[in-house]
Amino acid sequence: MQGGTRKKFVQLARCANTLMAFDITLRMFRYRPGQAAHFETYAVTVPDAANVLDAIEQVWDKHDRDLMFRHACHHASCGTCAVRVNGREVLPCIAPVKNYLDGAKALTIEPLRNFSMVGDLLVDVAPLLQRQETAGLVITRPVENHLDGKPIASAQGLDPESVETVPFNRFEDCIECGICLSACPTMAASTKFFGPAGLAALKSQLDKTTDPTERARLLDLADDEQGVWRCHSAWECTETCPQNVRPAEAIMALRQAILARKFGFGK
C-alpha cells in the first residue's frame, strides 16, 4: 500500500473505532474500613453508547473483582446504583459516558455523601430507608384518579365515571436512591434532619389519606425542628432528583399544610 492511501486507511479505521468504542480512564474511590481511603485509576474500553455503570462494571470485570458497588435494574427504576460522577450525584445506569468526556477522558467516581461508608462505592442507606418507612411510603399507590395533578380521565380521554370505579395502580415516583440526601447541604451538616426524600414521602402519604389521626401523625413528623423547618431552600434535592419527585416543593407544601393547621385557615 502506498504511503498516502495507507494513512487514509488508518484514519478511516480509527474513525470507525471511535464510533464503536471509547478508551477512558476511571478514577475510582477505594475504601475499606480501617484502611486509608484513596483513588485508583483504571483504563477501560467501553462501547460508544455506554453508560457510566457499564464502565464501572468493566473495572469489576477486567481489573478488580474486589470492587464494592451496587446495582440491579440498569434502567433507573431500582435506585440502588447512585454514585457521584465528577462530584455530582447521578444514577450511573442512565448517565452516558459521552456526557462526561472532556479532553482528559477521565471520570472520577465516588460514593454518595452524607451516608456512612461501607466500602468503595457502597454506603449504608439504612437511615434513608428508615425515614421512608416512618413516613409509611409504599411501593405503589393503591388507587389513583389523578396523575401529575390532572384527573386521569381527562388526560387519557376516558369516561370519568368509569375511572372512579376502576382501581388504578401507579408506582411511587421516589426510587429511594439517596441522591437528594447526598446533594442536600443541610443533610451534609446534620444527620438529624429528616431529609428531602423523607419529607417528600410524608407529603406523598399525606395526599393519600383522609384519616385525621394519620394526617396528624404525618404533620407532627414534618412540623419539627429537624423536619420541614430545617430546610434552607437550596433546592439541590429537586435539582438532582432523577425521578422528578421535587422534594423541595413537597417541603414547601408541607409548610403550607402545617401553617394552615396551626392558624386554622385553608383545608
Binding site: G87, R113, N114, E236, E239
Partner: peptide
C-alpha cells in the same frame, strides 16, 4: 463538605 466546589449549583 459544603466546600466541594465540583457539586456547586445556583442553589448551593
Amino acid at each position: 463538605r459544603w466546600f466541594d466546589f465540583r457539586s456547586w449549583r445556583l442553589g448551593m
